[in-house]
Amino acid sequence: MTEEPQERKVRQLDARSLRGLAHPLRMQLLDALRHHGPATASQLGERLGESSGATSYHLRQLAAHGFVEDAPEHGKGRERWWRAVDQGLAFHAEDFEQAGPEVRGMAEMYLHEVANTHARELSSWLSARDRWSEEWSRASDMSNATLRLTPELAVELVQRMHALIDDYRDRAPGKDAPNSEQVRVHTHLFPIETD
């Protein structure tokens, strides 16, 4: 019997939630909880090279904006465990076009931090790929393509790529399946200037 895929809870970012998230350490904390599961402020501090005081403060800020919550089933005694509320975030630039300069600045900071995170993850993979099996090394991809599209075709392509990724998410083997690993997929589509 196969398990029915769970609906993936994705949070749509708005101006208020962006205020609570648009900070590099908060974004790293949320990513760590989403990708590695519940943890304490101390564990997250160790993982990210930050003090537990800093991680604790920023976790409370994330909780105030609904990004993280207590995970009491993991704690023992006074230990406070945190977990991510959502499995993903959605950012739509058009939601911020009419916003004031402060919110637009936070949106820019958020987007740049996402790009920095993608670069760090890719660099970490390149540094560690020799520790993975040859099979996983061959299964990885780092490619790019240049196309000529209209904005409408670009939107269609992005939607189809996301649908394809969702199809594979629904087909994902369980955690205990032989040779299965968690993988990251980055997609970027943007216009480039040409002469």
Rank of each mutant, 00 (worst) to 15 (best):
D170C: 11
K9P: 11
W125K: 02
R47H: 04
R60T: 09
E4S: 06
M27R: 05
L59M: 05
V185G: 00
S124W: 02
W82V: 08
Y110H: 12
E152W: 08
H188W: 07
W136T: 03
R129V: 02
H188E: 07
L157T: 05
P173W: 01
H35E: 02
P151Y: 15
A64D: 12
E94A: 02
R11W: 10
S137T: 10
L44G: 10
L62V: 15
R80Q: 03
P191C: 14
D70R: 04
G53A: 13
D70V: 04
M142S: 11
R80T: 05
R171Q: 02
I192D: 04
H118Q: 14
R26C: 03
D176M: 13
K175E: 14
R171W: 05
S123D: 06
A39Q: 13
T55M: 03
A119D: 02
H162W: 03
A145H: 08
L122D: 12
R47Q: 13
N144W: 08
E152P: 08
P24R: 13
A99T: 04
R11F: 03
L89T: 14
S143W: 15
R120P: 01
I192R: 06
L48Q: 09
T150P: 00
R131M: 13
L153M: 13
E134Q: 14
A15V: 01
T194E: 07
P72Q: 14
E94T: 13
A54K: 14
V185E: 02
W132G: 00
R16C: 01
H23F: 00
A22D: 13
D70T: 09
H112I: 12
P5H: 07
H112L: 04
A172N: 03
E108A: 08
T187K: 05
P5I: 00
V183S: 03
A71I: 08
S124Q: 15
L62Q: 15
F91G: 01
E97A: 09
A154D: 09
R169M: 08
L21H: 02
L25E: 15
E113V: 15
W81C: 02
L153V: 08
P191Y: 01
V114Y: 01
G105K: 14
G88N: 03
D166P: 08
A107L: 05
D167R: 12
S52H: 07
S143M: 15
R160K: 10
H74F: 04
A163M: 10
E7P: 05
R104K: 09
R19H: 10
S51Y: 10
S56L: 07
G100P: 05
G49Y: 06
P24H: 05
N116P: 00
Y168H: 06
K76D: 01
Y110I: 01
P191M: 09
M109N: 12
R19P: 01
R34Q: 14
A39C: 02
V155N: 14
R16G: 06
R184A: 14
Q28A: 12
K175R: 11
A84L: 09
Q28L: 00
H74I: 00
W132D: 04
